[in-house]
Nucleic acid binder design. Structure first.
Lengths: 151, 151
DNA sequence: GTAACTGCAAAATATTTGCATCCTT
DNA sequence: AAGGATGCAAATATTTTGCAGTTAC
């Protein structure tokens, strides 16, 4: 990663925290940075590892919770009982998540990520039901894994 | 529940186990019975409670895992990090789940259940991606809660 | 009789809480 | 200076594993 990119990310991190009225602390900067430096979604344990030994596990729990509350990251539920977190897009704000994209879990590389360009479809519910958030998780083979020759 | 219904469920339970080449044991009968006696999806903890003190927690874990493997129940992932289990329809079989319906979580009564009549929509993925299973979880107000006068 | 299932104990893992201290503003 | 954030300790909850005894067939 170039020096320029590092600088850009640092700026983004600070801007995000300020915009959400969060004080700028080491753990928040580090964890946001981790999200910005890669594209996939991260499970709690991934974040702990990437952060190194620098932060207490409890701090990671609390920081992630704060970010979810503020609408900075969102939760992607998966069937293996390990929720993952991914950055929200700009439209999200406190108490009001606006994530209308779908999520993809690759069966080959196990990565989870947002497909920001694929919007969640309209779901026609039976009479009497009213829909709030619609979560779509597609499991399959991602672009990268599909284009590589089979091992 | 009428005597007749109880008998019917008992028959279903045994049939299901036999069809899947599972030996008929107390815990398996009890846990399947719990699923058949109600419509919603159940979290591990619900099942433990409903089963009373009769079975070891470990047995519940193992039994649920067996049922998932055999295609008798399926997992519904939810964002609160507590997966729930629901009965599969007949088309499921070992190693080959065929659940093409969507799942609904009520924000009022917190119940989770399958909407068997609502099939998962086609998702148009970007080039290079191939889709396997598509999981749709809709969060909103269920029929029952919506029809009741507000508290 | 034999393979499979269960219960118990215990380990491993994950999550939450209280509190004293430190840091950001 | 004050409120909020962090680290540490510990409580609590969840899930997995090994093994010995029991049960289904």
């Amino acid at each position: 990663m170039s020096k320029k990119t590092v600088k850009l990310i640092a700026n983004q991190v600070e801007a995000l925290l300020k915009r959400n009225n969060l004080s700028i602390t080491g753990s928040r900067k580090k964890i946001l940075q981790i999200f910005l430096e890669q594209t996939g979604a991260l499970a709690h344990v991934n974040i702990e590892k990437k952060a190194g030994e620098k932060f207490d596990r409890v701090t990671v729990y609390r920081t992630l919770q704060t970010f979810v509350d503020k609408g900075i990251i969102h939760i992607i539920p998966t069937a293996d009982n390990s929720i993952r977190y991914a950055l929200c897009k700009d439209e999200c704000s406190e108490g009001h998540h606006q994530d209308h994209h779908i999520h993809f879990v690759c069966n080959n590389c196990s990565k989870t990520f947002c497909l920001d360009d694929v919007v969640t479809p309209e779901i026609k519910l039976p009479a009497g039901y009213s829909a709030g958030h619609v979560e779509v998780v597609v499991e399959g083979i991602c672009k990268k894994c599909g284009s590589q020759s089979p091992k």
